[in-house]
Design a protein around this nucleic acid. Structure first.
Lengths: 245, 245
DNA sequence: TTGCTCCTCACGTCACGTGAGGTGGC
DNA sequence: TTGCTCCTCACGTCACGTGAGGTGGC
């Protein structure tokens, strides 16, 4: 003759705490009590719990269920809205799965866009600074620029002068800087000519604010490379001439 | 020379509050302050925020990201576990979409299993008690029993004696009860013979506890139908004989 | 008396959102 | 002085989960 809270929960396919929560938010009326204060539920409560269970399983929030009231059997609008949200969510999760799949197959780093992942694992000799620089670039470049950048990295032979560059101490004297810059020119020139579209692509679909791109790249350069290295970059750029186009 | 919290958030593609939250949970170190107490972020922070953004977008929790540490590029196990969870979630949402689609197409009640929905809308004359009874049954019966039950309802012609039954007052005298029972026999008999598999199906794959089924159905009967109605059901059952097989 | 159930607070979870109240910079 | 940004609490969100501390039933 009447069910306990736990029994109601089990009959409704839910939990003790959920039933009490439905009381708290006013979705489920409290039943009569026995002499000892125990709650005593009837079929009407079970029907309400089953209704809530059904609707939450479909994806409705408790607030929406309350808003429907007990009378509205078929809230057309809400049903369509929910369906659209489900499509959205499923899409997003599926895109995540695609990325995950690529990462797993290629054993690529999980925290980098997959386009960059390939470049990083192939030319496994990137310095920490280079890697950080690329993470920043991956955000600043648009998809096209990112791809072009990754292609360039993947196809560039690791020149031994790059290692010297990475190891260059901040107090390297002018002669050493100029000498390194001169020896780097051929490799840098090769990068440019093999990937003459890079600059255009990077500028083409970079995100919203162009100044922001420049600022961020400049800031990254300052923080990731020491003074001597930045000087070498400048010297190399002057020697190699401006990027084509 | 360093970014503000808002700038860092925008560069990282996230929000002010998220950045502060990452501080609070220890995922992001606090940067140096300016003389006025304002935070001043650098590229290292941007790199960390971008990493967090990337991993949360894939579906990792902040706790998991913390557990990975900064060194573990490719947490194989975690990646596979996450993928499995995504499959689970996507599946569940897709099942919900299938149900939603059916409900929308058939303009069926959202809070009933679709099998019952058809029966309810077709024989639109179910009393509230009948409807509640069916909701309870839909939980107590297994899928086979539910389907059989729905088929029976959908194919049963609404007999005019059913309306009399619904309207029967609790204090109806014995003569009235016996008389109604006798007139209901043909309709009830037809239901039985057209759907002789119902009882078997209901018992076949009913959920776990058989006693529970009996208790629930009995309770529902007691609460949804008045004394006279229950008496008529008993009399009709006696007159119509036991269910076949 | 022991073990199990029921009850009511009330804090915890997760990843932030949203003011409240006060101050710095131009 | 006004308007905008930055700061630090601190409570709110959502749907419950998880004890804490006490009592009833057999």
């Amino acid at each position: 003759m009447g069910w306990s809270t736990r029994e109601l929960a089990e009959l409704g396919g839910t939990t003790l705490r959920a039933v009490r929560h439905y009381h708290a938010v006013g979705l489920l009326p409290e039943p009569e009590r026995r002499a000892n204060g125990y709650k005593q539920y009837g079929v009407s409560h079970l029907v309400k719990v089953l209704r809530i269970k059904r609707l939450t399983d479909l994806g409705f929030s408790l607030g929406q269920i309350e808003a429907m009231g007990e009378t509205d059997d078929h809230p057309e609008e809400a049903l369509r809205t929910l369906d659209a949200e489900l499509v959205e969510t499923i899409d997003r999760l599926q895109r995540a799965r695609v990325e995950l799949g690529t990462i797993i197959r290629r054993a690529a780093p999980a925290d980098l866009p997959v386009e960059l992942g390939a470049a990083v694992t192939q030319t496994a000799v990137l310095s920490d600074a280079d890697r950080s620089f690329m993470v920043v670039m991956s955000r600043v470049l648009g998809p096209q620029g990112l791809q072009a950048f990754a292609d360039m990295l993947a196809q560039t032979e690791r020149d031994e002068t790059f290692d010297e560059f990475d190891a260059l101490p901040p107090d390297a004297d002018e002669a050493a800087r100029e000498e390194l810059a001169e020896r780097m020119v051929p490799a840098v020139h090769a990068m440019y000519t093999d990937h003459s579209g890079l600059y255009a692509a990077a500028v083409a679909d970079g995100p919203r604010d162009q100044r922001l791109t420049v600022d961020v790249v400049g800031e990254a350069m300052r923080e990731l490379y020491n003074e001597a290295q930045r000087d070498v970059i400048r010297r190399t750029r002057d020697l190699a001439g401006p990027p084509p186009n």
